[in-house]
Each structure stands twice: as C-alpha cells, then as structure tokens.
Design a protein around this nucleic acid. Structure first.
Lengths: 151, 151
DNA sequence: CTCTTATATAGTAATCACTACTATTTAGCT
DNA sequence: AGCTAAATAGTAGTGATTACTATATAAGAG
C-alpha cells in the first residue's frame, strides 16, 4: 500500500513538472490504470473510474490516458490495430499477445532487459523504448485450435 | 521479377492448402501488399488495387488483408492503436516506429534474428513470432522537437 | 466443357472507438 | 477570497472497420 502512495507522489511530481493540474479525474484514471494489471482499454478504465466518479466522461478518460502516455506515466501497449490498450507498469517488461483471444500477458526475462539496438539505428533515430514483442497462442486457445483440427 | 512469380506460386499453394479460392481480388491485394514496402494501411492497399480492379470494394480489401494475415501470408504490424498496418515481408525483420509522425522503418540486425524466448514462456504459450519493437523519434521529428524546446 | 455449389464480392448500411467542440467548472496561483 | 488558464462533461462528429444481402464466380464433378 505504501507502494501506491509512492507512485501517486511520483505522479504528482510528474504533473507539476509538466505544469499539469492535479485533478481528481486524472488521479482516479491513474489509480485505475496502475490497479489494473491486464492492460485495460480506455473503456475498461472508464468503467473503473466511474465507480468513484460517476459523472466522469469517456472523453476525459481517453484524453487523460493519452496525456499519461505523453508525460511518460503510462504506455500505449504495442498491439495489432485493435482497441488501444494502456499499461501503467513502468518497469521493464515484455508482452506476449495471443492472436486468438487478444489477451496480453506480461513476462520478464533478464536477457531482454537491456536490449541494445545496433549502432546504425542509434545514429538514425532517437530511441526511446525497446521491447520484445511475442505473438502466438495461449494454452487454452492452442488446445481449442488443435481440437478443431482433429475433428 | 522471378521473385514475384515464386511468391505468387507460394501464395497460390497457401490458398489451396486452406481451401481458399484464388480470386483476382485476392491476388491483386496480395501483389499490392508485397509491392509496398511501407507497411501500408488497408486504405493504401485499396488505392493500389483499385488501379487494376476499379470496382473492388474497400470491404473486400479489408477482409482479404485479414485473411492473408490469418493464413500467414502477411502480418498485421504491431503498432499502438492507430490505423491497422500490414506487412507482406515474411522475412525476419524488426520495426522502428516514430511516435511523432507514426512512420514505420524496417531494420535488420543479426542479433535479433533468432531471439529465443525463455523456456518458461515456451511452455505456457505456443510462440509464433518474436520481434524487437523499437519506438522513438526519427531524425526529422527529433530536430523539430529540439527546435521547439530552444525557442 | 458444362453444371453445381459453396465461397467470395460489391455496394451499401451499421457499428465502434476515438476525437472535436463548447459552455461550464476548477486547480493553482496571488 | 479572487483571478485565469486549463480541464471537464456532455454532447456531436469523424474515420476506420465490420456486417448484411443479393449477385457473381472459382473449383471440383461428371
């Protein structure tokens, strides 16, 4: 729980640094995001925030999520063109996505922590973030797939 | 040019294997996709196919692109929730995305060719594709950004 | 080569996520 | 407490993708 306080304090500082107002809506969106470990969509965050602030609008949630990702308090998850998904986990981690059920799973692997991009790329681009993105089938989907093939 | 013939032949076989009809629309969508190295959107593929088949509908292009990605003849590029983008390049390569102008750049790096996922992950999931996804600013956008800051 | 049939297509209309707009409210400063 | 720029609620709007339906056609059988 102390963790939450620390994160909130860091978030406040981040806002102040960027001259962004600390509004209840922003705080609740941020809290909802870091409380959801499942890479929620804007809609999902909206539903959660609504429990605390019943009058909040979806637009505000969307705008706020974009703001969070702009100031570096959240990430937009690399996906494949479906609904936008957000991630409040700032620690280095990788994503696995099931192409069937579209669920995301986090994974950590020391070898992927500090991937170095080739020098050539570093010269041509300002690199901000590097992730290993894995696609495939989760176990339930894989089993379904195989059953179908056996029929 | 022989390359194109080979790819088309492989594509035909892929369709036959999946009991998919080889229609002119499908062939043209596929050709348009592998002819565009810039990770085109459905809209862009549509424009290109229309030059050959003026009556083709956007829906058909969309459906076909999804079909292609389903049978493994194309990929949906990992992005960040904007317009879907497709990639007909099946060779192992990585993507850099500029978060400002949203352009994608391919890059190849031997070290990233055969990334091995941790065993734990291999047990829990059927891994189909692994890419290193790099985000940042391309040179033009980086320079613009810095100019703004200096004003 | 013709027939048959399941599949694919064109041409909409509908849906869904996201963004834009405007009047109102409010955080943060003095 | 009062001021002001920024943020919000409550729409309406936009743009991409999908769904629907009648028509057309690819591919296998005879």
């Amino acid at each position: 729980m102390n963790d939450l306080k620390e994160k909130l304090e860091a978030f406040y500082n981040c806002c102040r640094k960027q001259h962004l107002k600390i509004t209840p809506q922003r705080v609740e969106v941020y809290k909802a995001l870091i409380a959801s470990s499942d890479h929620p969509s804007a809609e999902a965050v909206y539903a959660r925030v609504k429990q605390v602030l019943p009058n909040v609008s979806l637009d505000t949630v969307n705008r706020t999520l974009n703001t969070l990702s702009r100031i570096g308090a959240a990430f937009i998850v690399e996906g494949s063109g479906d609904v936008k998904r957000f991630d409040g986990n700032l620690e280095n981690h990788q994503h696995f996505k099931c192409i069937k059920c579209k669920k995301f799973f986090d994974f950590y692997h020391d070898g992927f922590e500090n991937i170095r991009v080739p020098q050539k790329l570093g010269h041509k681009f300002e690199v901000l973030k590097t992730t290993v993105y894995v696609e495939g089938l989760c176990r339930p989907c894989f089993e379904k797939e195989n059953k179908v093939k056996l029929d």
